[in-house]
Structure formats: C-alpha cells, structure tokens
Design a protein around this nucleic acid. Structure first.
Lengths: 354, 354
DNA sequence: ATGAAAGCGCTAACAT
DNA sequence: ATGTTAGCGCTTTCAT
C-alpha cells in the first residue's frame, strides 16, 4: 500500500516525506474509487473503455486525492512521453523563427504534447552533447530549427528512431522530415530585386551564423552573376555575430560607407540590423531610399511601422510551425507522409526603404 | 559529409523493433563490459565508486553500443528528473525577461539540468491545467516568470513539495522562493523622474497584462500624489494588449495626443512601444525630448542605440536568472536558504529621450 | 569495489 | 467492462 492511510476530506494528502512526488498514486485513486488500478488508468487516458458511472467515481477520487499523474512512469511503460523537443539557436529577441516555435507550441499543446524548448547556441561542438541529453528524455518527436551541423549528432538522431523535423532551412541530406526554405535563394532574390530597382553598388551586412552566411553567399554570388563585381570577395561585406542587434546595423553602415562611399544599397542580416542601418543613415544625413536602399530579413512585427517602412523578406513562421506540428504528429501516429521535404518559400515585401 | 555512408565499426546495436527507444539499455552495456547493471550505473553517474579499470570498460561499452540513458526510468526510481520547468508569459520578441531565462538556462545547463520552457500565455484560466501538466513531469524545480494568479494553481504548487521560484515580480504571498522587483515602484519612479525633469502633463501607454498594469498603477498613483491630476482616472492613459509591438507606440501617441494635445511626457509599456512613440513623434514633427519626453521599459539591447537614445528602466535580467538558478539548486540540494524573497530592484537609465 | 534483490508508478497484453 | 500479471529501465537499499 502506498501508505496513503486515511486522507480525510478534500484535502490533498500530506506529502509523504519524500520530496518531488506528491505521494498520491494512481493506486490510491483506484482504492478510493473502489476499482483496480488499470481501470483508474483507463478512466483517465481512455475513458471510452470505462463505464460512465465508474468513470465518474474515478474522477471524483482524483479530485479528492489531489492526484497528478506521473508522466515519467507512464512514458516509461508506454513509450510515449508526450514530449516534443524543440531546439532553437537562441531565444534572444528579434529572431524570426520564434513565431514558428510559438505556432508549433500551440498546435502541439492542443494535441496533448508539451514542448521542451532548448537553446542550441551557435556552437557546433556542443551539438552532440545537447542532442544526447534530449534523446535521454525520450521525446516523441524532435524539432530542430536549422539543420544539424555535426555528423555525430546527425548519426545519433538518425539511429534512435525518434521522428525528427529539421526546419527553417533546406538541406540535401535531411535526417528525416524537413520544412524550410533556401537562405541562398533569399540572398539571390534580394540582390536581383535591388538590381531591378536600378541599384548597382550593393553591399551586405552578414551574420556569421550558418543561415545568415547562406543568405550572404546567395547575395554575393548573385551580385557577381549580375556583373556588378568581378568576384564574390569584391562585394562589400561587413560581418557580425549572432544574435544580431540594432547596433550592428549602425556599425555596419558606418564601416561599409567608410570603405565604399558610393554604395547605393545594403542588404541587412535581419530586420533589427536594418533598423539600425536606417538610424545610422539618418544620423549621417543619408536619405533612404533615395541615396541608399536598405533591405531587412524576417518581416518582424515592427518592420512595416518604422520610418521609412522596411523592405524585407517575409517568412510565414506560423505556417511553418503548423506544418511542422502536423507532419511530426502524422509521423508519430505512423500515418503516411506524402513529402518528406517541403520548401515553404519566402516573400519579398516591397516597402519604402528600398 | 552529412550522408551516413559508412560507420561500419562503431555502429550502434540494431535497435530492437520497438520505436521510441534506441533499444540499448544499461543492462546491455553492463553485459558488454562484463559487469552487473548496477556497476555500469555507478560508472556513469557516480564514477568515484567504481574502479578506474572497470569504469573504462563501461565507457567503452557505452561507445560501442551507442547507449543513451533513459531519464524517464532514472527519474522514476531516483525521484530526480534533472528537469527544471520554466513558465514564461510568451517567447515573443521584445520581452525583457528572456535575458533572465537565457542566463538561467546556462546556469542550469552547466549543472546538468535541462530547462522545459513553456508558454503560459496571458490567460489565467489555463493556468491550473498548465501547472498540472508541468507537475506531471515531476521537474526538480519550477520557475514562474510572473507570480501565480489563480488560487488553484497556487495551491497545487504549494502542496507538491517541488521547489518553486516566482520571478520578475513581487508578491506578499509567494509560494516558496521569490526573486523580483516591484512594478508599481517602477511606475512611481518614472513619474517622479519626469516630474523632476520639469514635466507636468504626464500620460501613459499601459499594457493590460498584470505587470504592465502594475507599472501603470504605480505611475498614475504617483501622478496624483504629485498633484498633477485630481484622481488616477484623470491621468491620460492608452491601454494595449500584450505582447506589445512598435505599432502600439505609434497608435498610443496618436490617441493620447488627440485627446490631450498638451502632454509633455509619455511613459511607455515597453521599449518597443517607446520606439514606436519615437517614430510617431517624429512623423508629427514633435521634437523628443523638447516637446515630448518618452520613457521605455526593459532597456532592450536597442534602447541605447536609437535616436534619440531611450531613457528607460533597466532590469538586470542576467542577474535575476543566475540568482534564480542558484536559489533553486540550493533548495533542491536541501541547502539552507538565507532569504526566501529577494528584491533585485531596477535602475532608471537617463538618456536623451527624456 | 561490486552485486542481488526490489520496486519507482504506470500501462500493454492477456485474461474474464 | 473490468481485472491480473508482468515489466518498462533504471537506481535504492542492503548485502558481500
């Protein structure tokens, strides 16, 4: 017996001296309701199998005893932890993918899953350790914002059999499922757009983080392809570390303009950087967009409301989040998946800044 | 290369047909190392108790087999899940407490804990359900950003015996530990500061979320106490919903000025709102700070770098995060806690906008 | 320094 | 519709 003795009325049982657990187990609930443990279990997790009257007694016993299930125990036995691990590069402000994480959270929450949100940082060497500690929780699914860098982590994730979605990026060798878009194409699209608007001296403020670097690569390659620079190393570039901040935009504009005073367009790593670029341009009496075009990335919720409104690239984060959740739950339930990889694309939003 | 090609040698044991678990258990590792399960267990979690040679054999077996521990099982038996649950109102951009969460994550991660980050939303009615699902994971500790609103959730948290820290706010009835600051005092300090700078017609853009509301309350009460308004309802106020956005600042300034054209200072719910206020003022040809003083909240990392630099209230989020982690780990380890409640205060940062 | 036994709290599988 | 049995994978006793 669980030592539960006599729990007078509605009061939760005094926690047995052990900390961590409230002490009330499903067996206690069952005793209180006058049924077997398994019936109590079914009444809570598969009510259709239980007689309504019995079910009511069990629910009453739950209330009386203050019972809270132990998912550690349930998950151990059933192999379903109801946990989705989601690894993001950072939760720092100004990250466009947080919208996707939020949407995903909602979708999973509605289906009875909890999301274990972990920060990956931008350090590849820690990746395997992080992945291992995540797998140790036996999540029912794993979402990775950004594709996996380290080979060791890739191998781990492939061999566990836990469904995995990589997102917010594309790769030719996904672990399992993939919902993303091409950052190189984003960079190309920006360069081509600026060219189409008559700009000829293009520079870029580039983040060193993998996806920022991919956008910068696409950008510089397109600049070369457009005949605006002899080689990619000739494209004016200022590099910054993630997470990106407004000040990076100010510093980037200052540094690019010092070296290349005739620049007429700058592609910025993120909207926050672009906002900084806007401030710096104004401080220098440079008119945006007449003298200098500024393009951001993310279409964060301030982008349309600054002055001038920011031309930027919009990613439908909510859509990505919902797709990720739907795909992962389909995989968890063993349903058939039509496409393993989805390119959700992006949209260049024309506003006044470029 | 990311493709899995040839990992012939060190290949993990073929997963037993069951999904979810890699199949390799500690018993397999023990067999491989020629020791008992418990020795393998000790070699991994309490190496000092094991002969170095044995320990090495176990570690080799771990590598050979691709073993990843199962924290569900370990936690079930040991009552230590190595999990810290952290509930935040939202992960949307522009939330000052994310800095605290990040610092906390780092501190916990370094000590072998993982952080289960959950969004609370701003809906009190969902609070109890959320708290229950969190307790169901049997975390070793719980961190709540913002004090608990619902009485049911409060009761649940008190009776489980799981150490709890409430943070980013103060209350007279904490569940257990508390590390925060008074939002009402923040509001008062802002009003008094503006008064000291010669401002007499003060307005506020207030978030409806509990802590934003508390700041607005402190502000309006101080305005009355300073003799600038006959009653709190006379203080010009524009209310907005969380999460706050830049556009709220623009709309707020527009609306406040329409009703009270002579306002000479506006206290904004967050820095993002203040930034919007700055843009709106400029669009209207209003000079900040000469004609209108603007104060923010949060000292987000863009605050110092906008134009004019933002006068705002700084919370040392990293400090809060570290304190929370240290306190919670002390309590988990059963160490003595000197003070249950800590007021970390705040700092009004004078810059050009006010 | 190592091992044997027991069981954490729950649910799958097989009864009835 | 309900119950019995067994055991998930680990770690806590309590030996040796």
């Amino acid at each position: 017996m669980k030592s539960m003795a006599e729990h007078k009325k509605t009061r939760p049982i005094a926690p047995s001296k052990r900390r961590g657990t409230g002490g009330v187990t499903l067996a206690d609930v069952a005793t209180l309701a006058g049924v077997s443990t398994i019936t109590a279990s079914r009444a809570l997790s598969n009510p259709a199998l239980v007689n309504p009257a019995t079910r009511a007694r069990v629910h009453e016993a739950v209330l009386k005893s203050g019972y809270i299930p132990n998912y550690l125990a349930g998950g151990l036995k059933s192999k379903r932890s109801r946990l989705i691990a989601c690894l993001v590069p950072t939760i720092a402000s100004g990250s466009a993918f947080l919208v996707a994480v939020h949407a995903m959270s909602e979708a999973f929450g509605g289906a009875g899953y909890q999301v274990l949100l972990g920060e990956r940082g931008y350090d590849v060497s820690r990746e395997e350790a992080l992945v291992e500690s995540v797998i140790a929780r036996r999540p029912d699914g794993i979402v990775l914002t950004g594709v996996v860098q380290s080979e060791a982590a890739h191998r781990r994730l492939s061999t566990t059999g836990i469904p995995v979605v990589e997102t917010w990026d594309m790769t030719d060798s996904p672990i399992d499922l993939l919902v993303g878009f091409s950052h190189e194409e984003v960079g190309r699209a920006i360069a081509q757009y600026l060219y189409g608007r008559g700009r000829r001296r293009l520079g870029v403020i580039a983040a060193t983080e993998p996806r920022g670097a991919a956008r910068a690569r696409g950008f510089t390659e397109a600049v070369v392809a457009l005949g605006l620079a002899p080689s990619v190393t000739d494209v004016p570039m200022h590099t910054i570390e993630s997470p990106t901040k407004l000040i990076h935009g100010r510093a980037g504009v200052a540094s690019l303009l010092a070296a290349h005073p005739t620049l007429d367009a700058i592609s910025c790593a993120t909207d926050l950087v672009a906002l900084g670029a806007l401030f710096e341009a104004r401080a220098r009496g440079i008119c945006v967009p007449k003298d200098l075009a500024i393009v951001g990335f993310g279409d964060l919720d301030f982008a349309a409301d600054v002055d001038p409104p920011l031309t930027t690239v919009r990613i439908d984060g909510a859509d990505i989040g919902r797709r990720v959740a739907a795909l992962l739950m389909a995989r968890i339930d063993g349903r058939r998946i039509s496409r393993r990889a989805t390119d959700v694309g992006f949209q260049l939003i024309e506003r006044a800044s470029a």
